[in-house]
Design a protein around this nucleic acid. Structure first.
Length: 322
DNA sequence: CATCGATGTTGAG
DNA sequence: TCAACCTCGATGG
């Protein structure tokens, strides 16, 4: 269930540990055997995140496109060291054991990025059996793709999309997506988002989830952005003021940057990463409105409303976001 | 143990 | 609009 921040973190790991290296590609699960064969043995030349999709380029000009969807996750093992940005902004990464395998993983840790799980706990079970002495580790579960360098192993499981694309197909895929504030930090991206929203009769709560309007926002960030702006989710885009829409873009940019740096969806100002990371902090403790149906609004005490719209759950405060 | 649900997208009807 | 996809933690017996 990763939103845009997770995908940027994954791409960062690939840029750090795979780009410039020859990669052995396989499909332990078998389902992607033909695709893996087309990139097997090639050097990875680029790793790029756009919204919730990631594109990995190889030196034969083929690209691996991955969309994690709602279940997918990458598990990293082996030589995973933090890059400077991550290390400086975040003191709570997984501990690294002598073999370099990151242990103690939790949601969006260095070792497992994507759907919340505790993959390394399973590895710990294996460690008891002594199988962790080998690198690469034996694939656990249904691994669609394994990418392997001399020192680092990345396993992909449960993706919605996993394709080999030609360069022109990559461009087509990216062209379908709206702007991504990390990829497109300039004003042109903001202007494109603003122009699109101001033109549409669609409710803003649907526009924010529309990946062709803005790439990378998911259900959590959607709900939180709307609350932070005290915006009625059902307001048509074209009824919003330009100022409001620009502020939405700026706030998304801010939350995304924080998410990429910390690996946490920190949507409540004033809470430390440690506070978010604590075992005490359940999901409902972390957000203004997301997953808080029926609970009192943190600002006015009114019960948070849950609606189903566009097949997804929408949370908001009916008073503060009237 | 079985069942549910999830930070998502696609495509059939 | 809704089921299907795919995985696994959480929840309920």
């Amino acid at each position: 269930m990763p939103e845009g921040h997770s995908v940027h973190r994954i791409a960062r790991q690939f840029a750090l540990h795979f780009v410039g290296h020859q990669v052995a590609a396989s499909s332990p699960q078998g389902r992607f055997a033909a695709g893996a064969q087309r990139i097997d043995g090639h050097v990875m030349t680029a790793a790029k995140a756009v919204g919730k999709q990631m594109f990995l380029e190889f030196d034969n000009h083929l690209w691996l496109r991955v969309h994690l969807g709602i279940y997918g996750a990458w598990d990293f093992a082996g030589d995973i060291t933090a890059d400077a940005t991550m290390a400086s902004s975040n003191g709570r990464m997984g501990q690294t054991n002598q073999r370099g395998t990151v242990v103690g993983a939790h949601e969006d840790s260095l070792a497992s990025i994507g759907a919340p799980r505790r993959t390394r706990l399973r590895m710990a079970e294996q460690e008891v059996e002594g199988t962790l002495d080998t690198f690469p580790p034996p694939p656990i579960g249904a691994v669609r793709v394994r990418l392997l360098t001399d020192a680092t192993c990345a396993d992909l499981r449960g993706p919605t999309a996993c394709d080999i694309l030609l360069p022109e197909e990559v461009q087509i895929a990216i062209d379908k997506l709206g702007p991504d504030p990390i990829l497109d930090p300039g004003k042109a991206a903001e202007d494109r988002f603003v122009a699109t929203v101001l033109r549409k009769p669609t409710p803003i709560c649907l526009l924010l989830m529309d990946q062709s309007v803005v790439a990378g926002i998911g259900n959590v960030y959607r709900a939180e952005l709307l609350f932070r702006a005290r915006l009625n989710p059902h307001t048509p885009g074209r009824e919003l003021s330009e100022t409001t829409v620009r502020a939405l873009w700026k706030d998304w940019t801010k939350l995304l940057r924080i998410g990429v740096e910390t690996g946490q969806m920190m949507t409540m100002d004033g809470l430390s990463p440690e506070a978010y990371d604590g075992a005490m902090a359940s999901r409902a403790d972390r957000h203004w409105v997301y997953h808080r149906a029926g609970e009192p609004c943190r600002v006015c005490g009114t019960p948070i409303v849950l609606e189903e719209i566009g097949g997804r759950k929408l949370y908001y405060c009916p008073k503060d976001q009237a």
